[in-house]
Design a protein around this nucleic acid. Structure first.
Lengths: 131, 131
DNA sequence: CATAATACTTACAAAATCGTGCGTACTTCC
DNA sequence: GGAAGTACGCACGATTTTGTAAGTATTATG
């Protein structure tokens, strides 16, 4: 193994849990959770288990492709659990894991705050940036 | 004006504060706040006021272009306050507004949770998806 | 007198993301 | 017997995002 100075070891540990560090995995996870559709799917699933087509109806505007892709990312990160029943026509259930619920406990209040703050934000919008 | 049924009015009001509705402004604001760089800039600013070049050093990996663009979005939404001092070389300070602090109060704990959850998430990662 | 520093802006190009449309295997409904 | 519903995968092109490099004005520094 290569030898590291104490400072380098400290630096690595600091990077391991710091989004501001470019190589920290937390950055990637943050992106999955807060991506255009990721956050909305999490909100929908926070309201209870759904199946694929149900999610499509809830998260209005999402395409099938994006929904499938988003669900796969969230599943890979361990936030959602996919349960496929071997029947025809297909029947697949999606629900949050424990980890997913923890994440949703942060995500959902934030989104609710935004929803409530919309009027204040619209009012605070810069009119035209006078000099 | 066009006449709306009671149901339509209710629907509009519901849409006005619902991220799951495609035209709700909250979706756009959510995007600015949770965009690739938006969230990281908010985290950096939550630690105190910074100037442009200071932010560039904090938020590692961001380009000047993206930092300028991100700051403009956050300023337009009323989350950050830009103060330019008329000196040469230029000196510009950025800090969170009250609205920005409220947002950061949701955003920062979520990111801290992610940073702490990284080990569990990495462990929960699907190995290869066995059938 | 050339360089560096600040806080950007603009132009250009590369890269990532996204939506649309099509196909699937089988059943139920009309 | 044709249509619809289910949960996707794939290919294609359009759109959006992002990075790189260069330029700007002025002063201080060597």
């Amino acid at each position: 193994m290569t030898i590291k100075t104490a400072a380098q070891v400290l630096f690595d540990q600091w990077q391991a849990g710091n989004v501001l560090a470019p190589d920290c995995p937390s950055r990637a996870i943050l992106q999955h959770l807060t991506s255009r559709w990721g956050a909305l799917v999490m909100v929908a699933l926070a309201m209870g288990p759904h199946r694929f087509s149900g999610l499509r109806r809830q998260v209005r505007g999402i395409s099938e492709r994006m929904l499938a892709q988003t669900l796969q990312e969230l599943e890979a990160d361990g936030f959602v659990l996919r349960t496929a029943h071997a029947v025809v026509p297909p029947h697949v259930d999606y629900e949050l894991t424990d980890l997913g619920h923890e994440a949703a406990n942060h995500l959902v209040p934030m989104i609710r705050w935004i929803e409530g703050a919309v009027p204040r934000i619209m009012a605070a919008r810069m009119p035209k940036a006078a000099e």
